[in-house]
């Protein structure tokens, strides 16, 4: 009962947040809704028994990415200033009815096709009995340092590269 309640809340948060990211005209609002959506995804991870992933999702997105995005918005003139020097000063309209109808129809068609393809997978899927409240941390840690050690090392090099690259790129050049 508790699990399905959490699932419904998280799903609503995820979908509502994602929709509002699309619909909101203000960039900072879109960032806040993105945060809501990512929190919903963290809740969904929790319902899937992936507690470590849920916590990492919270840390990386709430603590890192969203604040970074807000920072970038501030450093590039805030959300109000959407004009460019060619005079195009509006976000291309999302409000037209035709856009919604065409988008909705194509989404329907695509989802039907995808569901048709995935039907066998979904039918064969069973809820693997997860032991209640076991920790995935130990398992993931062991797997990261045994089977997936190469990917782990490469990702750490990638992060270091991203860190240095970001610092070098965004530094204003003198002279």
């Amino acid at each position: 009962m508790f699990g399905s309640t959490l699932f419904i809340i998280s799903a609503l948060l995820t979908l509502g947040g994602a929709f509002m990211v699309v619909a909101s005209k203000n960039l900072v609002h879109a960032c806040v809704f993105l945060l809501a959506s990512l929190f919903g995804v963290a809740g969904l991870y929790a319902t899937l028994g992936a507690d470590f992933l849920a916590a990492i999702q919270l840390v990386v997105y709430a603590g890192g990415v969203v604040i970074l995005m807000l920072f970038a918005i501030m450093l590039t003139g805030g959300s109000q200033d959407l004009s460019n020097k060619y005079g195009l000063n509006k976000i291309p309209g999302m409000g037209s009815v035709r856009t919604y109808i065409a988008g909705g129809l194509s989404a329907l068609v695509i989802s039907l096709v995808v569901l048709k393809i995935l039907a066998n997978v979904i039918k064969s899927a069973q809820v693997g009995e997860l032991p209640e409240f076991t920790t995935t941390v130990e398992k993931i840690g062991t797997m990261l340092l045994t089977d997936h050690i190469l990917a782990f090392e490469i990702s750490s090099i990638l992060l270091l590269g991203a860190l240095i690259g970001a610092a070098v790129i965004s530094r204003p050049r003198k002279g």
Binding site: V60, G64, L158, L159, G161, A162, A166
Partner: peptide
């Protein structure tokens, strides 16, 4: 995603 956000925003 984190690395992409950092470099992209830079």
């Amino acid at each position: 995603a984190a690395a992409e956000a950092a470099v992209g925003l830079a």
